[in-house]
């Protein structure tokens, strides 16, 4: 199956799935599908890295298999595990049987618990495999991923090598809290997603919060853009812009004036020092006017 026809078509279908991608994102997504290479998406929190994978699965009607990474993730939870409780039951139930027979029986598909990576590989239907926040894992898990990502196969000692029935489209996301190994990066296409320009961001706000008025959406996007110009500990992301628009709709506010900004700033800025700085900048702006 071909995933997408061309970059332009990718952009269109992602937009239909509710994800407004820019040229670079659409082109790279298309390339990842066309070349059959994993796509490593990097960028600040809340710019829609995970959402990209979800949108691809929605746009192509593929199944989404998600592996959420965290510190201490291991093979048993990423790849596969033997269901040893069921195996014990099997052994107890087969009292009197010869050992060889039992042995052959307990290491079969029936007793295999597949975890996300193996599930994605064995799936007969088109699959999008999302490996989320890959930078949170330990270095050993990266080694595990290498075999899966480059050859799309998994070696299980008792069963042999399980190859992919159909190549999944792999999307890895990372917040860059640590450098990923060169070996992993080399196997991936790299895409850096950043805060979008105003035009696109306004479109995103309007599509995510349909109740919001055009003018208010414009004001919110302008205000967020101004906030990003300030030197903040955490710049507001798209997710926060959307939250802000939602808040204003819920409060039934028609225009974004200074008072409203001061009252609802907590939705966009999550650090006390950022808050103070933004208000100071706002006051300075007013004095100049």
């Amino acid at each position: 199956m071909t995933w997408f026809e061309s970059p332009a078509e990718t952009e269109k279908r992602l937009a239909e799935a509710g994800y407004l991608a820019d040229t670079a994102t659409a082109t790279t997504t298309y390339l990842a599908a066309a070349l059959g290479k994993p796509l490593l998406v990097e960028g600040p929190a809340g710019v829609g890295k995970t959402e990209l994978a979800k949108a691809v699965s929605r746009a192509t009607g593929a199944e989404l298999v998600r592996l959420q990474c965290y510190e201490g993730l291991d093979e048993a939870r990423a790849l596969y595990e033997w269901n040893y409780k069921k195996q014990l039951l099997r052994i107890q139930a087969s009292q009197g049987q010869a050992w060889d027979e039992t042995h052959d029986q307990i290491f079969t598909e029936e007793f295999l618990l597949t975890r996300p990576l193996l599930t994605a590989i064995r799936n007969e239907h088109p699959t999008v495999l999302l490996v989320d926040e890959v930078d949170k894992t330990d270095v050993e898990v990266e080694g595990l991923l290498l075999e899966v990502l480059s050859d799309f196969q998994v070696s299980i000692p008792e069963l042999g090598t399980v190859g992919a029935v159909r190549r999944p489209l792999v999307v890895l996301t990372s917040n860059a809290t640590r450098e990923l190994s060169e070996a992993l990066k080399r196997r991936c296409l790299f895409l850096h997603v950043d805060h979008p320009d105003k035009e696109r961001e306004r479109a995103i706000v309007v599509s995510q919060v349909p109740e919001v008025e055009e003018a208010l959406a414009g004001q919110v996007v302008d205000a967020v853009a101004a906030l990003r110009q300030l030197e903040l500990r955490k710049s507001p992301s798209i997710a926060e812009t959307v939250d802000w628009a939602r808040t204003l709709v819920a409060l039934q506010v028609g225009t974004l004036d200074d008072d409203v900004v001061a009252r609802t700033l907590g939705v966009v800025l999550k650090h006390a020092s950022d808050h103070d700085r933004a208000l100071a900048a706002l006051a300075g702006e007013r004095r100049r006017r």
Partner: peptide, 27 residues
């Protein structure tokens, strides 16, 4: 090269995206 082959040379920004996706590993 494979990426450029898949995309063609029609559009300059597409070419840039193709090179960036395959050659860059760090922002």
């Amino acid at each position: 090269v494979r990426a450029v082959d898949a995309l063609g040379l029609g559009e300059r920004e597409t070419l840039r995206a193709a090179y960036a996706a395959t050659l860059l590993k760090r922002q």
